[in-house]
Amino acid sequence: MQLTNTARAVSRAFDAALAAAGGSLPTWQVLLALKTRSTANQRELAAAVGIQGATLTHHLNGMEADGLLTRRRDPANRRVHLVELTDEGEAAFRRLRDVAVAHDRRLRAGLDDRELEVVRGVLARMLANVTEGTTAGDHS
């Protein structure tokens, strides 16, 4: 329960920080995914961001209306839309990146390198515990 409560509080704090800077978590995720590749199609973005296609389309529509990105048909495959950041999208990325960095600093405040390594190890083990093929109670 403590992990769930902590995750919720951390998530709410990050959402609030992004909102104060004019962003949201889905916007940040899309901007970050586009920043790591110069152009992406919507299927690649959905996979990178972990958002279903229809939900991603909704977010992309809003971001395009806000001038953060453009979409165009792929000349090699007219069924595919290529997504690219605009100059305004680049500026939004930098603004939200600063928010993400500040949020990360806030989370790590008062923790030394050894403690952070322990936290990373514990979180990695917990993730593995819930994502591995079998669970501790599954003996079939």
Rank of each mutant, 00 (worst) to 15 (best):
E44G: 07
R73T: 06
A20S: 04
A109V: 14
V80L: 05
E88N: 14
Q42Y: 05
A100S: 13
G121A: 12
Q52S: 12
I51Q: 10
R73W: 04
A46I: 05
N77T: 10
L25C: 05
M1P: 04
A124Y: 10
R37I: 03
M1N: 10
T36S: 08
D112S: 06
M126A: 15
V49L: 05
T70D: 10
M63I: 03
E115L: 11
D104T: 14
L107P: 00
H103F: 10
A109I: 05
A76C: 06
H81D: 11
Q52N: 13
R71G: 00
L68S: 01
D98L: 08
A40W: 06
L32Y: 15
A17C: 01
E90G: 15
A40C: 14
A33F: 07
D87K: 08
T55W: 11
T134M: 13
G67I: 05
F14K: 02
A102H: 03
A40I: 03
N129I: 12
A7L: 06
L3T: 10
H139M: 07
S38A: 11
D87A: 15
V119N: 03
E88M: 12
L82N: 01
R120T: 04
S24F: 02
T57V: 11
D15Q: 07
E115A: 14
L82M: 12
A76K: 07
V10H: 00
T86H: 12
E64S: 08
T6D: 04
V119F: 05
R108F: 08
E90K: 08
R106F: 12
V80R: 03
R12P: 01
A46P: 00
R97W: 07
R12W: 01
T39A: 13
A65V: 07
R95V: 06
Q52M: 09
R95H: 10
A16D: 00
T135Q: 12
T131L: 15
N61V: 05
L82G: 03
A7M: 06
H59S: 01
L68D: 02
A92N: 02
S140W: 14
D138E: 15
A7I: 02
V119S: 02
L31G: 01
